[in-house]
Every structure is written in C-alpha cells, then in structure tokens.
C-alpha cells in the first residue's frame, strides 16, 4: 500500500493494518491542517512531494521503527494535493503488545517524518496569493512567485 494518497485518509483502514489480538495497545496520530498564524484567511493547503522519494523515505522510517520496536506494527499515510482545513494531512498508527511501545513507535515515525519526508505545502489565501511554508511556519524564499510582489 503506498504511503501517499490524494483522497481523505481512512483511519479505520489504517487501524485494520496494525490491530491484532496479540497487540493490546494502539496509538494513532493525526496531523491536521490548521490555519497559519498570519497572512489572513487560508482557503486551502496544497501538499506536493517528490513522490518516489516519499515512498522510499517512509519505507525506511517504518523499517527503523520495526527494528527498534520489533513487536510493534506501524503504518502511515500522507495526503497530497488540496487538503481542506481541519482534515488530516498525515496519519500514523502503531500497535504493540503494550501501550509504551505503541506510543514510542508512533512518536518516532511522526518525528522522523517531519524531519525527512520530501513534502512541501503551499497555502492558498482568500485573495488568491500563495505562500510556501516550511515546517516551522516560515515563508520559503519569500514565498512570492517570480515577478510578483
């Protein structure tokens, strides 16, 4: 199953991949699109990626989690394309025999994903302007298209 998808993330499908009778703890993390701190009303956020590397990097991260927590099962999705405010852009599910490993594996994957996945987001504002944002909320290289602003 590819990690990237363009439709809304189905949490039930994600959970079904990791939940099992021998795993008594399941942690689910959802990262949802939120309004930026400035620049006025955000209409939507467009996510784009380096798709081949996104799959490769996600595969490495999940493999690392499985190596560190061998009894855990972890899966994840990242949504690309237009994502409305309030909907999930990323989801991670981790299940393990006990809750500690489930929480730890889930936390590991989201933290590594934030640092490593080749994904970019562009805010589309109500006046049609667009702003590229990094993970700290900063504008990327001014964020204004060439010749603009």
């Amino acid at each position: 199953m590819p990690f990237a998808l363009r439709d809304p993330i189905r949490v039930d499908a994600l959970l079904a991949e990791v939940v099992a009778p021998e795993r008594g703890g399941t942690a689910l993390f959802l990262g949802t699109v939120r309004r930026g701190p400035d620049d006025g009303p955000v209409v939507r956020i467009e996510y784009s990626a380096y798709p081949e590397m996104l799959e490769a990097e996600f595969t490495r991260i999940v493999s690392e989690a499985h190596a560190r927590w061998p009894e855990a099962r972890v899966t994840a999705r990242h949504r690309l394309g237009d994502v409305p405010l309030g909907e999930a852009s990323i989801a991670i599910a981790a299940a393990a025999p006990h809750r500690g490993d489930a929480f730890d594996a889930c936390r590991y994957v989201i933290e590594e994903a934030k640092q490593r996945l080749p994904v970019w987001k562009r805010e589309v504002l109500a006046d049609g302007a667009t702003v590229w944002r990094d993970n700290a909320g900063g504008r990327v290289m001014g964020g204004v298209p060439p010749g603009g602003g």
């Binding site: 590397m53 996104l54 994903a113 080749p118 987001k121 590229w132 993970n135 990327v140």
Partner: peptide
C-alpha cells in the same frame, strides 16, 4: 540529484 526546499511534511 534532487534539491529539496525546506521540508513541510506531516
């Protein structure tokens, strides 16, 4: 080779 702008995934 790929040049990656500051990452914004998650």
């Amino acid at each position: 080779l790929a040049l990656l702008p500051p990452l914004a995934g998650g």
